[in-house]
Amino acid sequence: MENKSRRSFVKKLGVSVGAAGLVGGSSLLSSCNQVETASGDTIKLLTSSGELVEVNKAQLKPADMPSLTENQKRGRKGLPGRKFVMVIDLSKCRNARECMKGCQKHHQLRPEQHHINVLQMQDAEHTAPYYMPKPCQHCDNPPCTKVCPVNATFKREDGIVLIDNERCIGCRFCIAACPYSARVFNWFEPRDAEKYEGVTYNIEANVPQKKGTISKCLFSADRLRDGKLPTCVSSCPNGVYWFGDQNEDAVTNGTTHETTSFSKLIKDNAAYTLMEELGTKPRVYYLPPKDRAFPFQGEIEDHHS
């Protein structure tokens, strides 16, 4: 009797300490999705960063999770008054790929599926090679949303191009239309499909992924709603990414948390957009790979497969 209660006390303590750490760390519980009820007092939870954790049931308070239709509705509308913009500083990238890892975890992607892909680039035969992270460009004139037959991909007021995988019919016209190869398809059951079973679909993270539908970078719209920077921006150890709101004319560096004027940043550094000649009007700006902080290592892959 005594023995049993002590054991349960120890167990409780451990769980509480663990859970407290998690809560303190990044207020995880508010964005937790219930995955599976374990026998006894603990429950398995999937955090918004894609980790599976076990916490005491007693520690739980109901999270603010809107219903599917509510989620889809607000997901289509976007955040009012915002105009999100990303600046990628190519002189800082050294191919650490933390952005890719964080992104794949967040969005339930297989290792070969990339919402963001760090490419090894070489513009002309004798020019210097460099690393170029390539997310969805969130074009203001998006070729992908134009061709969608069912309005499953759409442009929001805040500039983000989103996907509703509850509606997508899997025709893949958007993949053909995108000149940036930004879109991926769920050719099979998505990674860890069984873990995510029964989880309410969050349109702003496109999680859980669904077999036979499209996915792509969403600027971590779910995190933006919580006032956080996108996963890739926060994961970068090298200060490559600036992210912010064009309306406020402010962007914040994901590594240094320094905030600066967006217009000044792109002006001073001669920023450009990718393939601007196509008229897609990207919302992702690149700062040229001049005075690179890290040398290019490795061999450049054949440019066109």
């Binding site: 061709v147 037959p149 069912v150 019919i169 899997g170 025709c171 893949r172 016209f173 398809f185």
Partner: peptide, 26 residues
């Protein structure tokens, strides 16, 4: 048969967007 989600074929009529060439084709 080429569709990833043939079960959602009716979406073409329920949510059809006339700006898409697929709708013209259908």
């Amino acid at each position: 048969m080429d569709m990833g989600r043939p079960d959602r074929f009716l979406n073409v009529f329920l949510h059809g967007r006339f700006a898409s060439p697929i709708i013209w084709d259908v």
